[in-house]
Structures are given as structure tokens and as C-alpha cells.
Design a protein around this nucleic acid. Structure first.
Length: 956
RNA sequence: GCGCGUUUAGCUCAGUGGUAGAGCACUCGCUUCACACGCGAGGAGUCGCAGGUUCGAACCCUGCAACGCGCACCA
């Protein structure tokens, strides 16, 4: 047994044990194990990322779950990794390259060179966050670390793309999408955040062509789009305007042209002026109106949000917001601007770039979500559980109104769409032999004429390839699709992952689609693509579906919902059984933590200052289920203080030497021993239930209370009477009880405090006599404590009454300390106390009280008659006197007792009033009535004694 | 606009029908032989507001308010 230093120094201990765990392979998951499986996949952090407090919260929870599962005898897989974070990563690297002067624009480098640079950057900096997770103590199986752009993972993504295309769920469409003018890419609806803006509403006039002198007033927030207006719409039932429908107005800006006045139900009477400018190119709703009325589409914005020549000479080249001001000025100058008023409206912002998005007509790849019904059902019927469960409703709502997902991004970093295409007409078809073969093959199998117009006779070649709807044909190594275009040409698409096919395609003149896929289109496959899918691996067999998923509610749609759908579609099963949604970490003002606000402390600094265990414990203590977490460094300090307490309690135990975990002899158990064993039993149950229900904060609170307020404050202090005594047999027994409690406590704490518990587990010798795999090597595999069996309860002589004496003693001690305080006697000075017991009291028990009270001498005297005015407190064991030689103030003592009597009387009045109410007696359950009667008796008894004590002081 | 959540001590939060709690902060005393990152004692709450149900409400019901979140969105 080695001497423990006086203060806990986490740094060396943490790195020592983490290296030891890794060296012993403690984190490795064995699919061949016959233990029951427990698995979690990490929500892959952004590869550009650094550890934040959000990661600390999220990963500490996962680590607690994983470590406890190991102690419960499960074979645990916690699978780590990162995602490639398309936009964010490309932005970061481009920015760096621009700063270094390596390029001005990505086109300077070109696609291949830039992607190579990003890979270079990723290899160099991409693993930072995973290293940081090690500092936190995360017990991930690092040998299985995955990245969403690993070759195998990329193959999964493209395979899924091809499969969904074959199923007719992925299609290419020209429609209005959310366009980010900063990142120059389309975004999904989920990546658009609506923000309220203080804008302006511009009211401007247009003249009716057919009725010169008649004007319509239109309200708009975007006058810069007037040059793109191709109609003016009114509601068909709006009597103000019905006579104008079918006529025209002069457009107010841009080329002076006539645009029609049309009737459309989309227009509401009472909003604005009831007249709507219709801009099909720049507004989703207007685009729909345009389709209904076959309006032309005029695009006046460049991809990066500048005005085109179509906007007119005055606006051309201007940035969109400058153009807005300018447009208003132009209207004003033309006398068309009626008024401008402040207006609050919601504008969609790009989540990543934080700039207003533009609705933009473009061709993109879309996905109709698969397996929607089973995905909805599993949460609705409870086969997958959400914690807190209110998220189930949010999920269901989203799944019900689900829209097709725009999955293509105009970026270079990501999974490139596995589609090769070529535009063909009759001539090119005949001229290109390889193409000819491909297309003929397709047409034969799709049973359609070739583009050349020849009808191919079907040749029966035995097994037919997949004959799919919409003329899509699936071969073993490719999917083909011939799409007629409006001008009579065709687009021929080949989807394939086969490198031989790809080289043929490229030689034949096909080009690959330039787009990459949304990062979430790869991470939605995470639970199975990380485990070797599509092979039927032993890992999948053992660990899929996973047990728990821990994530933030902010990605419930982005990630969780989509993973569920992918899970059903590709594994035929849900991907995880429970989803725990963490809160969001905020600062004391309730703001989210962010770099730009500077309110986001670096967890590594906190670990350096307080230790990883302290950070974990402090974070978990302050993170209740279902609510956001208010971050305060005080919580980490609390964690650090707790570790020190644990450390010093261990030191105290070690100072007393003796045998480690000696035998506990029931005949030697003191009332204090029984009391702490009963408390241990309570806390084992409490912590286990709390963890089963994902109440991490409650579990940590229970442990904190048990160890500090019960074990240290009472049990250790009470045990000093024995440990500093002379009865060696009793002393050994007390140490045995301490070891028993301590070794259980360390195990209960291990998931929260992995490092300090491992250190103490070993240094205190608890690992010594255990089998290697059950705590002998490491506390990580020590058996999770269970509440006592009835045999154990019997052995320790524990029943409902066994802790009554200890409780009575502690109440007596508190009463005595209260007396000291009342009479300003410092706690560190010995004082004489006399206890006049109401029953028998063993010498040992009196000794414990004396110790806890710092009483010397402590006299137990049933016949004690106090000097008049001696301060006295009523305790469950008897009357406790604090004799104050020469300082007795009878009046003061009378007043003190009088105050107490007043309190007791108030309580007595309360309970008597209830009992006197006839309704109460008649209607209340018998148990409650009995409880109140007992309460009355107790208060009355106390009252009588206090009165007696006051009377004994005489009349003054 | 629809939906969800929160509102309890100065702060952060427990407490789902029967005597209002914890940690931190605060006040007082204490360097006592595990620990001052500590020990002991203490003060502190109209349980958001208004009704209702009940013998009894922090807790159940209704309405309202404030704050937060999600969804939708009218130019």
C-alpha cells in the first residue's frame, strides 16, 4: 500500500490511466464475445471541429452509459468518428489558402487540386477533436474510428444513391431551392433559419396600360426584384380589382414593358394593398403562380447575389441590398413611390454562412424520403424511445409534413454524385459505337425505341435485369436511364460505382455530374455504414441495432429522423432503441455558447485547471434531463472540490492501515455501521434507477449527497470514536465496513469519475483479490453494485428500525451544536455537556456523541439536576445540558426556550386545526389521518417538555 | 398563427395531492491530528398571476402573463 499525497493532482494520473486502458485494450469491442451487446455510435463531430462544452456534455453522457454497461457485464461498442462537413470544411481550407496567397478563388486551383489540399489539411488537423475526447476520458473503440469520406464509407453513400435512384426516389428536378449566395450552393430546407428582420415595406404605383391614369398600388419588401416581375396578381374575388383582370400594367422598373394583371387565389384581400407583384424567378410562391399562369421567368440575380443586366443599367452589377435602396430611389425619382414604412418580417438565413438565402430556380437532385411510415410508427408505438419524450411529438410532426430533400450541393468537398451523363441525338448515337451499345442495351431492356427511332427487337437473354419504372434499368454493375429532352435530344444517364464501367463511360464522352451530396446524406447511414455494411459483418450482427443514441435536439431532423429512415430502408430495422436528447449549453445570460461571443471556454483549459473528472462531474451535476444547461465555472470547481474530498477520504482510510477489505463481523457492527450500510443500500438503488432512466444529474446528485453528507460528515466522523479507541477487534471491523462502503462507492462513481476512481481502486488495494476481468485489472470491469439481497440484509442485521439509534444520536449532536452556537462557544474548544437520557445508552454510543460534539467531559447522568437556568436542548435520546459555570442567564434561557415553544405551538396549531375539521376526519385516508394524529402527539409531547423546562427556571 | 417547454430561496435546480428541499452564494464561528478545494452553525421562498376541483394544491383543471424552443408564414 503506497502513501497517498495530500492533494489530488489529476494531470499525471489521467494520462497514466488512459494509456493503461488503451494498452490493455479495454475499449475494444469483440463481436465474438458471448456477453450481451451494448452499442453507441458517436454523433460524428465536424472534422474541422475542436472540443466544446457541448461535446463534453454529449460525450460524457455516452461515456457514462458505456462504462456502466461494461460494469453490468455487457460487451460494449462505442464507435467514434468524424464527418467531412462539406461547406464548413471547404470554407475553412479555402480561407486558409487565400490567406496564404495560394489562390484567390477556388477556380485558380481547380477541383482536383483543391480537393487534394483539403485532404492534406484533413490529414494534418482532422483528428484533433478525437484526441481531445481522449483527454476527457472517452472510452471509444478507437480501432474502429470512421470518417464519412473513408473509401468504404464513400462506397456506401454512392451505393445508396444508386439504389434510391433505381427505386425512383431520387430524381433530378428544376425547381425553386434555397440558394446561399455566400457559399454558392443550394441548401436543404433544414439549413435555412428564419430570422425576424426590421425591414421596410415599399408601396409603389403602377399604371394600367389600358386605362391611362388608373394606378394600382403594390406593397413589397423587395423592390430590387421589380425588373423580374412578369405579372401583377389580384384575388379573383376582390371586387376592387375584378374589372382589371386581363388588362396590363407598365412595369415600374427595368425595361418598360407591359405585364398582365392576373387572378390568383394565393393573393389575400387584406394583406398590403391586395395587389401582388409576381416574380417567378425570386420567390417560391410566385414561382407557383407563374407555373399556373405560364408566366415567363426573368432572373435578375447572379448566383452571388448581384443584379444582372436584365435588371436594367442603373442596377446592373449592384449587390442585392444596395440595389434595394437604389430601386427605391429610382421609384421615388419616377414619382412611383407612394410610401415606405418600417416592417418586421421573417427572412430565411443560411445556417452556415449566416446571410439571407435567395429562392432560386435551379436543377438539383432531390430525394423522396424512404421508409417514412415505419420510421414514424416506431416512435409512435414506443419501440424506439425518446428522452425526454416530448421530442417524439416534434419528430412526428416533422415526419408528417415531410418535403422532398434537396441533396445536391455545388461544392467540391464531399461525395460526388455517381451519375455520368451524355447528351445524345440520332447522329451522335450512330457515330459513337460504345455509346450505341450502351443505349441499345438499355432500350432493349427498357423495351423502348432507341433514340434513332429504330424499334429494337427484344432478345431473350435468360435472366432479365431489374426492369424498373420510369424507364430506369438496373444492371449488376450500373443503372441506366434515357431521358427525352424537349428539343428532341436525349440525356443518357449511367449510375455506377464500377471503375471499369467508369473508364468506359469517360472514354465514350460521358461526364460526371459535378455536384456533391449533402453531408447529411452520408451521415444518415452512420449506424450501419460504420459497421461494414453492405457486408453482413460480425460487427453488424452483434451490435446493430445500437442501444442508445445521445445527441442534441437541434439535429433531430437533420440527422436523427433521417438515420431512422435509412435504418429501416437498408437494415429493415430501427438503428437505435433509445435516443437521449441533451440540453443546449448556455452562458449565465442564457445565450448559446459561441466563439464570436467569446463566452465559450475551452474544455481543455478547464481540464488542465481542474481535471477531466471535475469537468465531467460538474457538467453532469448541472445538466438535468430535458432542460438547457447554464454553464458556470463554479460547477467545475464543485467537481474539483468533490474529487479532493474523495481523495482525502481515501487518505484518511489509508492512514489507519490494517487489512484491506477484511471480513465484516455482524456481531461487531455499531449503530453507525448499520446506518451507513443502509444508506449505501439506498444510494445503490437510487443511482441505478436514475441511470436506467437517463437521469444523470439525479444520479450524480445522489452520489454526491451520499458520499459527502452521509459517509464523510457522519459515518467517518462517528467512526473516529472507534478508530482512535483501543478496541482492536472493533477497529478492524470498522475498517472493514469502510472498505466495503468505499469500494462500492468507487464503482458507483466510476462512470462519472473514471480517472480518480481507477487510481483509488488500485492504490487502496481493492483490485488485489479480484479476478482480472472483474476488477482485478481495472475498475472498468468491476461488477456494478446491486442493492443488498435479503441474505445480505440479514447478515448485516438491517431492517426498518436498525438505523433509528444512529439517527437519534445525530439529531442529539445537532442539538448540542445548536446550543454551542446559541451561546457563542467556538466549535474547536472542548466543552462540558451532560446528557440526561430518557432510556439506556451504551458507553460506546455516548462516546460517539461526545466525539461528534467535541464534548469533554461528556457526562451521561439520568439523575442530573441542573442549576437553574442551565441551557438545555430536547433530543430524541434525552435532555442535553450545556452547563455554563458562572455565566448563567436565567432570563436569556427562558427567552430561548420561549422562542422554541412558540415554534412548536405554531406547528401544533396547524395540525390541530386540520384534525378539528370534521371534513378532514371524515374524508381523509386512514393512513394520513393516523399520520396527523401521531404528529399531534409528537408536537404535544415536545411542547409539554419545553414548558416543563421553562417552568423549572422559575418565575424569574 | 399552430405546437411544445419553462416559471419554487440572490443564482442553478429537485420536489405530481398530506410538515417547502439541495448545491452555490450570503452571514457567523473555527487552521480541531483526511480534507480551508475544508469543518460547524445560521438567515433566507406571497412556489409567475387569477379562478376552479378537493377536507387539503407548488403538484390536478381552466384562463392569462413573461421567457425560451420548434413548425408554418402574407408579398
Amino acid at each position: 500500500m503506497t502513501e497517498i499525497p495530500k492533494t489530488y493532482e489529476p494531470a499525471a494520473i489521467e494520462s497514466k490511466w488512459y494509456a493503461d486502458w488503451e494498452a490493455k485494450g479495454c475499449f475494444a469491442a469483440d463481436p465474438a464475445s458471448d456477453k450481451p451487446a451494448y452499442s453507441i455510435v458517436i454523433p460524428p463531430p465536424n472534422v474541422t471541429g475542436h472540443l466544446t462544452l457541448g461535446h463534453v456534455l454529449n460525450n460524457t453522457i455516452q461515456d457514462i452509459l458505456a462504462r456502466r454497461a461494461r460494469m453490468l457485464g455487457k460487451e460494449v461498442l462505442w464507435l467514434p468518428g468524424t464527418d467531412h462537413a462539406g461547406i464548413a470544411t471547404q470554407n475553412v481550407v479555402e480561407k486558409t489558402l487565400r490567406k496564404e496567397g495560394a489562390m484567390k478563388h477556388r477556380d485558380d486551383l481547380g477541383r482536383e487540386a483543391l480537393v487534394a489540399k483539403i485532404w492534406e489539411w484533413k490529414e494534418k488537423y482532422g483528428g484533433i477533436i478525437l484526441k481531445q475526447l481522449r483527454a476527457l476520458g472517452a472510452s471509444c473503440d478507437w480501432s474502429r474510428t470512421r470518417f464519412t469520406m473513408d473509401p468504404e464509407y464513400s462506397a456506401c453513400v454512392q451505393r445508396v444513391f444508386v439504389d434510391l435512384y433505381k427505386k425512383g426516389l431520387i430524381y433530378r428536378g428544376k425547381r425553386m431551392v434555397n440558394w446561399c449566395p455566400a457559399s454558392l450552393t443550394a441548401l436543404s430546407d433544414e439549413e435555412v433559419i428564419m430570422k425576424e428582420q426590421n425591414g421596410l415595406m415599399y408601396h409603389f404605383r403602377v399604371e394600367v396600360v389600358e386605362e391611362p391614369g388608373t394606378f394600382l398600388t403594390i406593397a413589397t419588401t423587395r423592390p430590387e426584384t421589380i425588373p423580374a416581375d412578369t405579372a401583377v396578381a389580384v384575388n379573383p374575388n376582390d371586387p376592387r380589382y375584378t374589372h382589371l383582370i386581363g388588362k396590363h400594367v407598365w412595369r415600374a422598373l427595368g425595361e418598360r414593358v407591359q405585364i398582365p394583371i392576373i387572378a390568383d387565389n394565393h393573393v389575400t384581400f387584406d394583406f398590403g394593398t391586395g395587389v401582388l407583384k409576381v416574380t417567378p424567378a425570386h420567390d417560391k410562391a410566385d414561382y407557383e403562380i407563374g407555373l399556373r399562369h405560364k408566366l415567363p421567368v426573368i432572373d435578375v440575380l447572379t448566383p452571388d447575389g448581384k443584379m444582372t443586366a436584365l435588371a436594367g443599367a442603373e442596377l446592373e452589377g449592384m449587390e442585392r441590398f444596395a440595389a434595394r435602396k437604389k430601386s427605391a430611389e429610382l421609384l421615388e425619382a419616377a414619382g412611383a413611390l407612394e410610401k415606405t414604412e418600417p416592417y418586421k418580417n421573417n427572412v430565411g438565413f443560411s445556417e452556415r454562412a449566416d446571410v439571407p438565402i435567395e429562392p432560386r430556380l435551379s436543377e438539383q437532385w432531390f430525394l423522396k424520403y424512404p421508409s417514412v411510415e415505419s420510421s414514424k410508427a416506431c416512435v409512435a408505438d414506443g419501440s424506439m424511445r425518446f428522452f425526454p419524450d416530448r421530442w417524439a411529438k416534434v419528430y412526428d410532426h416533422w415526419m408528417t409534413g415531410i418535403q422532398d430533400w434537396c441533396i445536391s450541393r455545388q461544392l467540391w468537398w464531399g461525395h460526388r454524385v455517381p451519375v455520368w451523363k451524355i447528351r445524345i441525338n440520332g447522329d451522335s448515337f450512330r457515330a459513337n459505337l460504345a455509346l450505341n451499345v450502351l443505349v441499345e442495351d438499355h432500350c432493349q431492356n427498357a423495351r423502348i425505341p432507341t433514340p434513332a427511332g429504330d424499334y429494337q427487337v427484344l432478345i431473350n437473354r435468360g435472366a432479365w435485369p431489374d426492369q424498373l419504372e420510369n424507364g430506369v434499368v438496373g444492371f449488376a454493375n450500373k443503372v441506366t436511364h434515357l431521358i427525352p429532352l424537349s428539343n428532341g435530344d436525349f440525356e443518357f444517364r449511367v449510375l455506377t460505382l464500377d471503375s471499369e464501367v467508369i473508364s468506359i463511360l469517360e472514354e465514350t464522352g460521358f461526364t460526371q455530374d459535378p455536384d456533391v451530396l449533402d453531408t447529411w446524406f452520408s451521415s444518415w447511414l452512420w449506424p450501419f455504414a460504420t459497421m461494414g455494411w453492405p457486408e453482413k459483418t460480425s460487427t453488424l450482427a452483434k451490435f446493430y441495432p445500437t442501444t442508445d443514441l445521445v445527441t442534441g435536439p437541434d439535429i433531430i431532423f437533420f440527422w436523427v429522423a433521417r438515420m431512422i429512415m435509412a435504418g429501416y430502408e437498408y437494415m429493415g430495422e430501427l438503428p437505435f432503441k433509445n435516443v437521449y436528447f441533451t440540453g443546449i449549453i448556455r452562458d449565465k445570460q442564457g445565450r448559446k455558447l459561441s466563439k464570436s461571443l467569446g463566452n465559450s471556454p475551452d474544455p481543455l483549459d478547464l481540464i488542465a485547471k481542474y481535471g477531466a473528472d471535475a469537468l465531467r462531474f460538474g457538467t453532469m451535476r448541472s445538466a438535468p434531463l430535458g432542460t438547457d444547461v447554464i454553464y458556470d465555472e463554479k460547477n467545475v470547481e464543485l467537481g474539483r472540490n468533490f474529487c479532493t474530498k474523495l481523495w482525502n477520504a481515501a487518505r484518511f482510510r489509508q492512514m489507519h492501515g490494517g487489512e484491506t477489505e477484511g471480513e465484516i463481523r455482524p456481531d461487531f457492527l455499531t449503530s453507525d455501521d448499520k446506518w451507513i450500510l443502509a444508506r449505501l443500500n439506498d444510494v445503490i438503488r437510487e443511482v441505478s434507477i436514475a441511470l436506467d432512466e437517463y437521469r444523470f444529474s439525479d444520479a450524480s446528485g445522489a452520489l454526491y449527497r451520499f458520499f459527502w453528507s452521509e459517509y464523510c460528515d457522519w459515518y467517518v466522523e462517528a467512526s473516529k470514536a472507534t478508530l482512535y479507541g483501543t478496541d482492536e477487534a472493533r477497529k478492524a471491523n470498522t475498517l472493514a465496513v469502510m472498505d466495503f462502503v468505499f469500494s462500492h462507492t468507487l464503482r458507483l462513481f466510476h462512470p462519472y469519475l473514471p480517472f480518480i476512481t481507477e487510481e483509488l481502486w488500485n492504490s487502496m488495494g481493492f483490485a488485489n483479490d479480484l479476478p482480472a476481468k472483474q476488477g482485478g485489472d481495472t475498475i472498468m470491469f468491476a461488477v456494478w453494485p446491486k442493492p443488498f439481497t435479503s441474505e445480505e440484509l440479514g447478515y448485516f442485521c438491517l431492517d426498518e428500525t436498525s438505523d433509528a439509534l444512529a439517527k437519534a444520536k445525530y439529531a442529539t449532536v445537532e442539538a448540542g451544536r445548536g446550543l454551542r452556537r446559541d451561546f457563542n462557544l467556538p466549535g474547536n474548544k472542548k466543552n462540558r455537556f451532560i446528557l440526561k437520557p430518557s432510556g439506556a445508552l451504551e458507553a460506546h454510543e455516548a462516546n460517539v456523541i461526545a466525539n461528534l460534539l467535541n464534548a469533554e467531559p461528556f457526562e451521561v447522568d439520568a439523575a442530573f439536576t441542573p442549576t437553574k437556568g442551565t441551557p438545555v436542548a430536547l433530543t430524541p435520546i434525552g435532555e442535553l445540558f450545556l452547563p455554563l459555570e458562572g455565566l448563567i442567564d436565567v432570563a436569556a434561557e427562558r427567552e430561548r426556550i420561549g422562542k422554541e415553544i412558540t415554534k412548536v405551538e405554531a406547528e401544533l396549531d396547524k395540525v390541530r386545526a386540520k384534525l378539528a375539521d370534521e371534513n378532514f376526519a371524515a374524508k381523509v385516508p386512514a393512513k394520513v389521518l393516523e399520520e396527523h394524529r401521531q404528529r399531534e402527539i409528537d408536537w404535544a409531547e415536545k411542547h409539554a417538555q419545553l414548558v416543563k423546562m421553562r417552568d423549572a427556571l422559575g418565575a424569574s
